[in-house]
Computed example of a mutant assay.
Amino acid sequence: MPINNRAVLIVSGGMDSCVLAHYYAAAGFHLHLLSFDYGQKHVKELDYAERYIADLRARYSQLEIVHDTIDLPIAQLLTNSDSALINPERQMPHGHYTDDSMKATVVPYRNPNMLLQAATVAWNEHASVVAYAAHQGDYSQYPDCREEFVDAFNNLLAVAMEGQTIKVESPFMRFTKAQIARLGSNLHVPFEHTWSCYEGGSSGLDDRHCGICGTCVERYEAFKEAGVPDPTVYANDPEQYLHIPGRADA
């Protein structure tokens, strides 16, 4: 039978994943955190995941917190993809997260691939919960971050294994990014140890976020709307892309 206080979480290096991990740890769950190297340009995020997970372990030392990074060959399977996240020849679009140009950052079947790995781990460990940090702001761009996808995936799990009792949860599905930032602040999340930028520290940016890709603008906007201090160093001012629907440089 599943152990009700054990969860398998899909985590990137981003602020949403960091808040997700703290959310379940604060609820008393033992955690197996899974990160994925799927050929993303911003693979730098995985280093930041290690940073905030180290902080999480120190804070919740009474819990078992395991972290693994899994190689997922999505980029190898999508050799002709037009996704700017995995195609080195495709320029990253700049602008607000809701711009149509941001559809270029969609990676086909990314979340189903990750969730299936997580469900397999959960089955092996008799965990009852698999979770990821999809939120309201993802709806417009990413089909596999929508509520109907989560419902369909849970149906798939139920059919795939007789007696299936693992459930995929997305507790932030109806949250805005600002609400996640506010929750993270209440949980004393170390936002300085998170990475959002799709440019991934390339082009001489080092540890500065570019400030002009969709995730940088969304991150900046979330902290601003939440009234939470933003520890991020931006190479460019994200303010120029706030509340300008349809504007993009690429």
Rank of each mutant, 00 (worst) to 15 (best):
E218R: 15
Y97W: 13
I3G: 07
L116C: 05
E45N: 12
H42C: 05
A122N: 07
Y142P: 10
R59T: 05
L205A: 05
D100I: 03
V8I: 15
M1S: 12
G28I: 10
R59K: 14
G246L: 02
M102F: 02
P171C: 08
R247L: 15
A160T: 15
R110T: 08
A127P: 00
H22S: 10
L183Q: 13
C145M: 13
A160L: 14
E239D: 10
D144R: 06
P143F: 01
S81T: 14
Q240I: 13
Y23W: 09
C213I: 01
E221I: 04
F153E: 07
R247F: 13
Q76W: 12
R110N: 10
H209Y: 01
M161P: 06
S81V: 09
I74N: 00
H209E: 11
I166F: 02
D230F: 02
G204Y: 03
L187W: 04
D249H: 03
D71Q: 11
L205Q: 03
Y220C: 07
A158L: 01
P93Q: 07
N5G: 03
E89Y: 11
N87E: 11
R174S: 13
L20I: 02
L77N: 12
N154I: 06
N5A: 07
H188C: 07
L63D: 04
L183Y: 07
A75W: 10
L115D: 04
G211F: 02
T79R: 13
Y38Q: 10
A226E: 04
V189Q: 01
P88G: 02
G211T: 05
A152E: 06
L20E: 11
P190Q: 05
P73Q: 06
D144M: 08
F175Q: 09
N5Y: 06
Q179C: 06
S202E: 15
W123I: 13
N155E: 14
S203Q: 14
F29P: 00
I3Q: 15
I74T: 07
V228Q: 02
Q62T: 09
L115F: 08
L157C: 01
Q40A: 10
P2V: 07
E148A: 11
